Simulated assay, not measured.
Amino acid sequence: MTDWIQNLMDSMGYLGILLLMVLENVFPPIPSELIMPSAGFAAARGDMSLGMVVLMGTLGSVIGTLPLYYIGRAFGEDKLVAWADKHGKWLTLSGKDIKKADAWFDRYGAGAVLFGRMVPGIRSLLSLPAGMSEMPLPKFLIYSAIGSALWSAALAYAGYALGENYDRVEQYVAPVSKVIVGLLVIGAAAWFIRRKREQGSRTGG
């Protein structure tokens, strides 16, 4: 994948960075931890401007958040609540749970988007709850842009500083991403088991 990313940037320049970062948000297996350090290395060679690398990475990342945001927006809280009340029993999920989650996102969503855009493993997925909770698009874009700019700048500068060893960034970040995803899976499993037990207790009573 490293060669493909490098070849695309070599042939398309800044537009290649933008396109790759859009794809990274829609298809997370294409990691920004490879894209931006590689672009930073290109800037270190003098082939690109570091400022433009960060700008195009940020722009591509923000554009890439929009498909999932609009999917979440189209689905919406009301439809999700109705679905959960009708079909969510096997997931121990109710409309009330959805409303609680939506209320949480309404309260902390801006911070979740801002900091979540810098967290591997969940940065792409935050667009869905943002859309479902109907976070205003300008607000979503502003916080996404700030978080994406910080993330893109950190990765690009790391590639710039490491030079030919820019691929070490992905080696360091990838385990962190796996740990975060693992913790999310464990947390979801624990919540599922707890709700099953609670349902069993209510039924037994």
Rank of each mutant, 00 (worst) to 15 (best):
E24H: 04
E24K: 01
E24Y: 01
E24I: 00
E24A: 15
N25P: 09
N25M: 13
V26C: 13
V26L: 15
V26M: 14
V26T: 10
F27V: 15
F27D: 09
F27Q: 13
F27R: 06
P28L: 10
P28A: 09
P28V: 08
P29M: 14
P29Y: 09
P29H: 11
I30M: 11
I30K: 05
I30T: 14
P31R: 00
P31G: 07
P31E: 04
P31Q: 04
S32R: 07
S32M: 08
S32K: 10
S32W: 01
S32N: 02
S32T: 11
E33V: 05
E33P: 06
L34F: 05
L34C: 08
L34N: 05
I35K: 10
I35Q: 03
I35V: 14
I35P: 09
M36F: 05
M36T: 12
M36C: 12
P37V: 10
P37N: 01
P37W: 02
S38V: 08
S38T: 13
S38Y: 12
A39H: 04
A39V: 13
A39Y: 06
G40W: 03
G40D: 01
G40V: 10
F41H: 12
F41P: 02
F41D: 06
F41W: 08
A42V: 12
A42T: 07
A42M: 14
A43K: 13
A43G: 08
A43E: 03
A44W: 15
A44C: 12
R45A: 15
R45C: 14
G46Q: 13
G46N: 12
D47I: 07
D47Y: 10
D47Q: 12
D47T: 11
M48D: 00
M48K: 11
M48V: 14
M48G: 04
M48I: 04
M48N: 04
M48F: 15
S49L: 10
S49Q: 06
S49M: 08
L50N: 01
L50W: 00
L50S: 00
G51P: 09
M52K: 14
V53Q: 01
V53P: 00
V53M: 05
V54E: 04
V54Q: 01
V54G: 00
L55V: 15
L55I: 14
L55S: 09
L55T: 13
M56G: 02
M56W: 08
M56C: 07
G57D: 03
G57L: 11
T58R: 05
T58D: 09
T58L: 09
T58V: 13
L59H: 06
L59I: 14
L59Y: 03
L59Q: 03
L59R: 07
G60A: 05
G60F: 08
S61N: 15
S61I: 00
S61Y: 02
S61W: 02
S61L: 05
S61M: 13
V62W: 02
V62C: 05
V62F: 03
V62L: 09
V62Q: 07
I63C: 11
I63L: 15
I63R: 06
I63S: 11
G64E: 09
G64C: 12
G64Y: 09
G64F: 07
T65A: 14
L66Y: 01
L66C: 05
P67L: 02
P67N: 03
P67H: 07
P67R: 03
L68Q: 14
L68G: 00
L68E: 03
Y69Q: 01
Y69H: 02
Y69R: 04
Y70H: 08
I71F: 15
I71Q: 12
I71R: 09
G72N: 03
R73P: 03
